[in-house]
Amino acid sequence: MSTIKYFINNINKITELTYEHFILISIAIVLAVIIWFTVGVVIRNNNKLANGVIGVGSIIMSIPSISMYGILVTIPFFGLSRKSAVTALVLYAMLPIVRNVYVALNEVDKSILEAASGMGMNKKNVLLKVQLPLALPVIFAGVRVALVMMVGVATLAVYIGERNLGRLISQGITRTHTDMVLVGGILVALMAILVDMIMAFIQKKLISPGLHNSNEYINQEGC
């Protein structure tokens, strides 16, 4: 009860923090998709390079977020600014997005690609009209994983100067204020679920109905 009371009494502050949280992950996901999608497409035909890049991604993924922030703030260019927070989030998105783009493009059924080029499509058309649309579900899954992760990771960015829902938790700890912590924690969890649902909705609109509920054409492992 007291939690709900706290929520209602502080609705303005909470709305502002939620908005900031949302803005941070929005900036990060847009940048991450632009960068890592491009990287995934570029490395798609080079196995060695791809293994290297994905290896780097998985090492980055295993770095604890507080460490990542801690390292970034000590680099003068980033420092205690939004740059550090965004950079950390973009770096974490590397593995899920690059790996899924690479795997998805390579797992497209070879006979479909042969049919496409056999019909006279040039390489650009094969990639744009056939390979990418077929890879889209898996690529999208990677973006979803990255986005949901960002929502959680962003909370710790309050220790490097961000103002977002994590602030409710960190202040709740210093003031031993349970309601603050609960409101912060629940809202972050809800945001993760909500973001995932929005992505699921976009995915449904964006992906051809011919690919729904079907693992036939693409091996979905690794997402």
């Binding site: 006979s111 056999g118 006279g120 011919g210 054409y217």
Partner: peptide, 20 residues
């Protein structure tokens, strides 16, 4: 590519585009 546009091509695995 121009050559292939003028030649019909059917393969065993068919290779229909599943998203079309």
């Amino acid at each position: 590519n121009e050559l292939r546009l003028k030649i019909g091509y059917v393969i065993q695995k068919i290779g229909l585009f599943p998203h079309y």
